[in-house]
Nucleic acid binder design. Structure first.
Length: 1053
RNA sequence: GGGCGUAUAGCUCAGUCGGCUAGAGCGCCGCCCUGAUAAGGCGGAGGUCCCAGGUUCGAGUCCUGGUACGCCCA
């Protein structure tokens, strides 16, 4: 190294141990000030009809709380992919979206307003209630923006979309009308958990709240029905036994169901035959005492038989009172024959519907029998159980009456037991275009792939009609107006504000309830003028709204028609795997029904973030590190890399520990190596006043190696990112960084302080070019750190405004890369031999021999082995047999199919060494001849030498372990150099300081050190070298050399 | 109960079309190296590839049946 001649610095002074969070905040501030995000979009043209756009849809989150790791994970993926495609030259617009409507918002408002239930809301006032929802729903929006911005996710918050916007809701209305006009909307009934006490249906979510499902004691009754006589009954009356824990549903019984493959016993007692599940007979030992079994029937043999209605209320109901087949029937509880009341059970409804039996619901909103069941009219159904059982007894049909304790859902508000009850609901006729969805799904690239035909594909195949109405307040109202007099029926469906204004003659500025409910008009089809058109009171399922996001976010078709034409489908969406039932599905339903297109082309489904024990993250348990704390202590890029490099984006789960140690490891293993390479470059470039330029034509072997290796990296990362394999891209970068820092830079170090300006410039230019390229490659994965390094190197505004590196600007040289990686393998092996023979690396050895067929090809790289292994000479030898013996290794993949069972004999002979190489290059073994392409000859090291084969088995490394006195002396010299360098560092000298050295040596080493004094002085930059004690004030340390004590002093000379 | 997924070193995970002695990173221990790197190199300990059958010359890999866990649905 030469002394710097008043150098000009071209690069910033880089802190070797910086605070990455502080760097990140600096970059974020600069982005905000310079509008870098917007520039990254603006500088990419959309192309003709959007041909150069990459379409990203942001799934709207519901902001009723702070973002958790799931959102953060999704957010990172939503940033990495658009950044990558932006660098690839695409225009990638990103708008943030908010899911505003729905039950979570209503429940939150109920809590805040301290009101509970539908009636309470109506009393409070729907207008005031919805006003509250409107303001509370975006309460956390600011926090969301803070998190999202801090994690370096680029997304447009100013131009966001909200599902409660007037324009958004109008587009949703339009979509509904489209479906209606296509005949895809109908009114039906749906059995739902229903709280009669709160007079409201509950969502599944609500039935699972807290401890609302808990044990309850109910009556369980077994009742017999009289089967209609058929031929083969022998004139004997047949009774079939059914069992239920809800006797109040028996008046609504319309059918019974049996399992087609279940065995049913026929028992006879006193001239009557009883039919029940064969496996359940024992339960009725007492009731059927004395009966004898006279036959067995399969369920399918009972199917189709009629029976007498138990009660007269619905005796003339069409298609009712028959035995139906149902797969879900079992013999666990009851009799193996299931009572069906389709108004009060979902299974019952499905089975009956399939057999043309309409439902009956003789129970009003408050859970009391209606006039249809006159005997108990006005009585709460649960209270009616007792009198009904009494009646069954009187009718002589009650076989058994027990009590039964089971887990039963309760209303979380009123604590009363729920009932299941059919309610009117509006449906999308998904079954009509289900097959088309299945077809379109095949055009979608799912990550991971199995989702396409697995979780999502199966769900599509089994799709049922979608119940889209909710008997609630805060949502997009269903735009259907009905006549309030069935005598003059009429239905109007509206698809725009203009249509509403035309018919109702008012200006519409809000589509929410209750304003829209006030729009009424006389029924035009009613000549009497008495009836009125009124809106059905339901609102839409909020999933209908989020599924409308592709068009509703731009108020299509009222605006942006041309834009929308080329913004469907999306190129990319990403959410967690459960959205196969949620957003992915509703996008698919609406995309298919409205546009006959798949709504997205690539879809990442990620897994779930868990704590270190595999438990769900829980706010209450606080079993995870606070994200904002991670941002500020470790860094947002580290967290990004931690999440993006894990298998979680391939659908797996990810455990995150409370201390965030996995995140800290990222800094150590990924960010530090990049940073240190940057630090190394700027440190010496500044010392030397060197300015590097982007050049990839250095002829130096190490330069060519790292340039070719970088090209391979760019190619491989491009392939991985194009396949949305983000974790794979991360892995490629890590492997590459090892070669960069621990081989290229380490082995190139001396060139950076070479006296030869052109050697030096080549090294600087190459390292610079490689680092600039790396910044671009990792820009999507470490957007903040890469920005800092890129800015320090190039002074350019942003790495995110740069193009993705073109690999053809880097030289390709796969042979060199392979040879170099082989040399690294040789060094590892040689160092292992040193270890094995107790020869420290600083002790030079006479030589190493590399014997192998391809040895000659390593000639140009031999000097690297020489310095890395610290030997005087490297011999390359093709004389394999001097150093090793051949081992036959047959190509099993090729020979297996050819030899079949004989493989075993051949392999046995190979193992015992029982084979011969023939003159024509083939091998004779166990009576077979192997052609040259059917085997390889590998090398095994010879006994008695310090030798070892490479892992590839085609080269043997032989180390000369003979230590001469000369070598030993040189070893001591190097030991001393090391100790002086250590002392320099301890004394905090600058790397360029010239120093004085004084040593007090053991007698045995003195001659050795004197011989090599020149070398030592050169290595440690010593202008003065004394034997004996150092001057006053020098930094002095005691150590040992050759096992003897040694004192050494250093001072700045 | 059904569907989908997962199961490989103490931990986190690779393992392609069935083919050679099952790998990597982290952690631990020892040695080495250090003119950027809280780094690096080498070695060691650590494996019933969840279990049982089957197909095959050959199975971590394919098939069948289980078990455990996760997610979704009932």
């Amino acid at each position: 190294m030469h002394a710097p001649q008043s150098p000009t610095k071209h690069y910033p002074d880089v802190d070797p141990r910086p605070s990455f969070p502080a760097i990140e905040r600096g970059i974020l501030a600069r982005w905000a000030a310079e509008g870098t995000f917007q520039k990254s979009i603006d500088q990419r043209p959309a192309g003709e009809n959007g041909s150069n756009e990459y379409i990203f849809y942001d799934g709207p989150p519901f902001a009723n709380g702070l973002p958790h790791y799931g959102h953060i994970l999704t957010g990172y993926a939503k940033d990495v992919v658009p950044r990558y495609f932006t660098m690839r030259g695409k225009r990638v617009e990103r708008r943030f979206g908010w899911d505003c409507h729905g039950l979570p918002a209503e429940l939150e408002s109920e809590r805040e307003l301290e009101i509970s239930g539908r009636q309470a809301i109506e009393t409070y006032g729907i207008d005031k209630f919805n006003d509250h929802c409107r303001t509370s729903v975006l309460k956390y929006a600011g926090e969301w923006e803070r998190y999202v911005t801090r994690m370096a996710r680029w997304v447009d918050f100013e131009n966001d979309y909200k599902t409660m916007d007037l324009s958004y809701m109008e587009s949703v209305m339009w979509a509904f009308k489209q479906l209606y006009d296509k005949g895809l909307i109908y009114e039906g009934h749906r059995v739902m958990p229903y709280s009669w006490a709160a007079e409201t249906p509950l969502s599944n979510f609500e039935t699972r709240m807290d401890n609302s499902t808990r044990p309850r004691q109910d009556p369980a009754v077994t009742v017999m029905l009289t089967l209609a006589p058929v031929d083969g009954d022998g004139g004997v009356p047949h009774k079939i036994l059914i069992w239920t824990t809800t006797p109040w549903t028996l008046p609504s019984n319309l059918a019974v169901a049996v399992g087609p493959d279940i065995d049913y016993a026929v028992l006879e007692l006193e001239g009557v035959r009883y039919v029940l599940g064969a496996a359940t007979v024992a339960k009725f030992e007492k009731e059927l005492e004395g009966a004898t079994q006279v036959g067995t029937l399969k369920g399918r043999e009972l199917v189709g038989r009629g029976y007498e209605p138990l009660f007269p209320f619905f005796a003339n109901h069409p298609n009712a009172f028959r035995v139906l087949p149902a797969e879900f029937v079992d013999t666990e509880d009851g009799t193996g024959v299931v009572h069906m009341a389709p108004g009060f059970g979902e299974d019952d409804q499905l089975i009956c519907e399939a057999h043309g039996i309409d439902i009956v619901v003789p129970v009003d909103d408050s859970g009391r029998f209606t006039s249809e069941v006159a005997d108990w009219q006005g009585i709460n159904v649960l209270e009616a159980n007792k009198p009904i059982i009494k009646r069954l007894k009187e009718l002589g049909v009650l076989v058994k009456h027990e009590s039964y304790v089971h887990n039963y859902p309760h209303c979380w508000r009123t604590d009363e037991p729920l009932i299941y009850r059919a309610l009117s609901s509006w449906y999308v006729r998904v079954t009509d275009f289900r097959d088309r969805m299945v077809e379109l799904n095949q055009e979608i690239n799912w990550i991971p792939e199995h989702v396409r035909d697995g979780q999502f594909g199966k769900w599509l195949e089994g799709a049922r009609d979608w119940s889209i109405s909710r008997n609630r307040f805060w949502g997009t109202p269903i735009p259907i107006w009905q006549s309030d007099d069935p005598t003059y029926p009429r239905i109007d469906v509206y698809g725009s504000i203009a249509e509403l204004e035309a018919d109702f003659g008012v200006e519409v500025t809000d589509l929410h309830r209750p304003f829209i409910d006030e729009l009424t008009r006389p029924n035009p089809d009613d000549p009497t003028g008495q009836s009125t058109m009124r809106r059905v009171t339901d609102v839409l399922d909020c999933w209908f709204e989020s599924g409308s996001m592709p068009f509703a976010q731009v108020h299509y078709p009222f605006e942006n028609q041309e834009w929308f034409d080329h913004h469907l489908p999306a190129d990319y969406i990403v959410e967690y795997i459960a959205q196969t039932r949620g957003w992915f599905y509703t996008l698919m339903v609406l995309g298919t029904a409205l546009f006959d297109k798949p709504p997205f082309l690539n879809c990442s489904c990620h897994g779930v973030v868990l704590d270190e024990n595999g438990q769900k993250l829980s706010k209450r348990l606080r079993n995870y590190p606070d994200p904002e704390e991670v941002f500020e202590t470790i860094g947002a890029d580290a967290l990004r890399w931690f999440l993006m490099s894990s298998p979680i984006l391939r659908g797996g789960d990810l455990k995150i520990d409370k201390e965030g140690s996995g995140i800290g490891d990222v800094v150590r293993l990924v960010i530090n190596p990049i940073w240190n390479a940057y630090y190394f470059f700027t440190l010496y470039a500044n010392v030397d006043g060197v300015q590097a330029s982007f050049r990839t034509d250095s002829k130096h072997l190490l330069d060519r190696y790292i340039l070719a290796k970088t090209r391979a990296l760019v190619e491989q990362v491009t392939t991985a990112m194009d396949a949305y394999d983000i974790a794979g891209a991360c892995q490629l970068v890590v492997t590459y960084l090892d070669a960069l820092t621990n081989w290229y830079i380490r082995r190139s170090r001396e060139r950076f302080w070479s006296a030869d300006a052109s050697i030096k410039q080549d090294a600087y230019d190459t390292l610079y070019s490689v680092l600039v390229t790396i910044c671009k490659v990792v820009a999507p994965l470490l957007p903040l750190i890469s920005e800092e390094v890129h800015a320090g190197l190039t002074g350019e505004e942003s790495v995110h405004l740069a193009d993705w590196p073109a690999f053809d600007q880097l030289p390709a040289d796969p042979a060199l890369v392979a040879d170099m990686d082989r040399v690294r393998d040789v060094c590892s092996t040689a160092l292992a031999l040193r270890e094995e023979h107790g020869l420290r690396t600083r002790l030079p050895l006479a030589g190493v021999t590399l014997a192998g067929a391809s040895a000659a090809g390593l000639e140009a790289l031999a000097h690297l082995v020489q310095s890395e292994v610290n030997v005087k000479a490297v011999q390359l030898s093709e004389d394999l047999e001097a150093h090793g013996q051949f081992v036959l290794s047959p190509d099993r993949r090729a020979l297996g199919p050819k030899l079949g069972k004989a493989m075993k004999d051949v392999l046995a002979a190979v193992r015992s060494g029982d084979w011969t190489l023939q003159d024509d290059g083939s091998v004779a073994v166990a009576g077979y001849t192997l052609a040259p392409e059917e085997f390889e000859l590998n090398l095994k090291p010879k006994e008695g030498e310090a030798s070892q084969a490479l892992r590839t088995n085609d080269m043997v490394v032989v180390l000369d372990v003979d230590v001469t006195p000369e070598l030993e002396a040189e070893g001591y010299a190097r030991d001393l150099v090391r100790k002086i360098q250590s002392a320099r560092k301890d004394a905090d000298f600058k790397v360029t300081d010239r120093i004085g050295v004084a040593v007090t040596l053991p007698a045995g080493c003195l001659a050795a050190i004197q011989t090599h004094e020149g070398y030592i002085r050169e290595q440690v930059l010593a202008t003065e070298f004394r034997y004996g004690p150092g001057p006053e004030g020098a930094h002095t340390v005691s150590d040992t050399l050759a096992g003897e004590p040694v004192a050494l002093s250093v001072w700045v000379g």
